[in-house]
Amino acid sequence: MPFDRRRVLLSGAATLLAPACKKEEKPAVDDAPPPDQASGRKGVEVALVSAARRILPSDGNGPGAQEAGVGAYVVGLLDDPAAAQLKSILMKGGDFLHRAAKNRGAKTFADLDAAAQDQVLQDLLDGKMRPNRFSGPRFVQVLTAVCLEGYLCDPRRGGNKDKVAWTWLGYDPKGRGAVYE
């Protein structure tokens, strides 16, 4: 796809979000967990919240997804008509994470330890795990994009609780411009 400057200026989302709008490709290999273990909405939500905490971990270097309320923001997108184009891949991806956890003997994705959660995400990203209903790398990228939304959005949207990420990174959209001091 040729580069379009407009996507940077007006569809900044295109960097990581655009793939959510693309048609899914059929992967060559399917080593996903069996589809008969579909997780239901609750399992998806738990998986997305837990994955968000691995994408932006609470690691002592600034606030993580947990402190910023990113998980709730991401779950909220599932019912947001303005984000309808994101719902499909988030649901499929969250379902996959839940079933992957079950395959590893855990009750939910949240019950996996951090290293195991990271490994699932990394394997999806690297194509070592290849779901049959969506692109693994695309899911991780889209999830990262919406996590960054929940991290750095205007707090009135439900994320960036108490402006913790803005404060950490020195961003202030009001006053005489942003001042990174």
Partner: peptide
């Protein structure tokens, strides 16, 4: 800021986590 963060995630190879 969100778009800048996305670029930071992508530039130099995609990363997540710490």
């Amino acid at each position: 800021p969100i778009h800048r963060a996305e670029r930071a995630a992508v530039d130099g190879g995609f990363v997540f986590g710490s």
